[in-house]
């Protein structure tokens, strides 16, 4: 840790937008030279440096970026159409044409794993975007308005948290029927409570901090305070929680699809692929069929957790995030 933590919360000195800030920035620069302190880095630069020094996080980010690229360009990466049945070649072992063999409908396992990344990553991102929006609306309202509104919203959050979320998700998926949109929405609708609590807590802490009170005393409007002081400091913990949330959503989708309630055939989802390969005859008859999507899930989730850990270091976040 660097010894410069007390100055964490200052705005970046060289503000690229707004010429009015130049005067104060210059004065601050002089003060820095006068006191012989190391040159002040913007919080973002410091965060980036700390992230880059976290080896596992950089590794995770590299893996994740590769997966994102693979899922975007799946049509070019996959050697075959993931839904095409090669009927002369059912349940084939891995060979030079089908690198991971074929499933019982003669579909190329490698191509399906490649396309499966598209399902997993998009479910993760969309589901978490949905619950980030809900969490932000509820958490920020509770934290900023306070009083009775806060009380009601937080009791409601407690209530949703009381339900075993996977059971709730599974039942809703059963009622609404399997489809990728339903999976995204259902995971999104029930995932927000931890994040809402986190956002509210952060806002409550920020409200009491000296520089916010100072800004208020100087006549800063609520809008100004939120944009200039509160939001930048909430970004750290929220980004950590969101990252872990994406991993959680990917695991939830995999579990849901494994139970046959998530993404249905013939679309390729890692959970569905494992589910199809289940049954004791398949377990050792064609291990590549379920080991490859399974290891893909592990790799994706692990990479995301590493990135989350790096962000936690980068933004100096304590505690365990959303608790999900």
């Amino acid at each position: 840790m660097s010894p410069e933590t007390p100055r964490n919360n200052r705005p970046p000195p060289a503000d690229p937008e707004g010429g009015a800030a130049v005067g104060t920035a210059q004065r601050r620069l002089e003060a820095v030279e006068l006191l012989d302190l190391p040159p002040e880095l913007s919080p973002w630069t410091r965060a980036r440096r700390r992230f880059m020094s976290h080896k596992l996080a950089v590794l995770g980010l590299a893996i994740l970026l590769n997966m994102v690229l693979i899922s975007i360009f799946a049509d070019f990466v996959a050697p075959y159409d993931p839904t095409r049945n090669h009927l002369h070649k059912l349940l084939a072992p891995p060979d030079s044409l089908n690198w991971l063999g074929t499933d019982r409908s003669g579909r190329d396992t490698f191509s399906r794993v490649v396309f499966g990344s598209r399902v997993s990553l998009s479910v993760g991102v969309v589901a978490v975007s949905i619950y980030l929006a809900i969490a932000f609306a509820i958490g920020a309202t509770a934290g900023l308005v306070g009083g009775r509104v806060d009380n009601v919203l937080m009791r409601f959050t407690d209530l949703v948290m009381t339900f075993p979320s996977f059971i709730l998700i599974v039942i809703m998926a059963g009622i609404l029927g399997p489809s990728i949109i339903n999976v995204m929405v259902i995971i999104g609708i029930f995932g927000w409570p931890g994040l809402a609590r986190l956002i509210r807590g952060q806002i409550l802490v920020q409200r009491e901090l000296d520089y916010v009170i100072a800004s208020q005393a100087l006549g800063g409007s609520l809008r100004h305070i939120i944009r200039r002081h509160v939001l930048p400091n909430v970004v750290g913990p929220v980004s950590v929680a969101v990252t872990l949330g994406v991993a959680g959503a990917i695991l939830a989708e995999a579990g849901l699809s494994f139970l046959g309630l998530g993404i249905s055939e013939p679309a390729a989802s890692w959970g569905t692929m494992i589910s199809n390969a289940r049954g004791i005859a398949f377990i050792d008859a064609a291990p590549a069929l379920w080991l490859s999507p399974g290891l893909s899930i592990v790799l994706a989730v692990l990479a995301i957790y590493f990135v989350g850990d790096g962000l936690r270091d980068a933004f100096d976040v304590r505690g365990s995030g959303s608790g999900n």
């Binding site: 579990g255 494994f258 050792d284 379920w290 080991l291 399974g294 899930i297 989730v301 692990l302």
Partner: peptide, 23 residues
């Protein structure tokens, strides 16, 4: 511990089944 939270339980279960029960 990162590995432990990244492995889906059903995948761990199937792998355990393959190794300790089948093989």
């Amino acid at each position: 511990s990162f590995f432990m939270i990244s492995i889906p339980q059903f995948f761990f279960a199937l792998s355990g089944m393959l190794i300790f029960a089948v093989w």
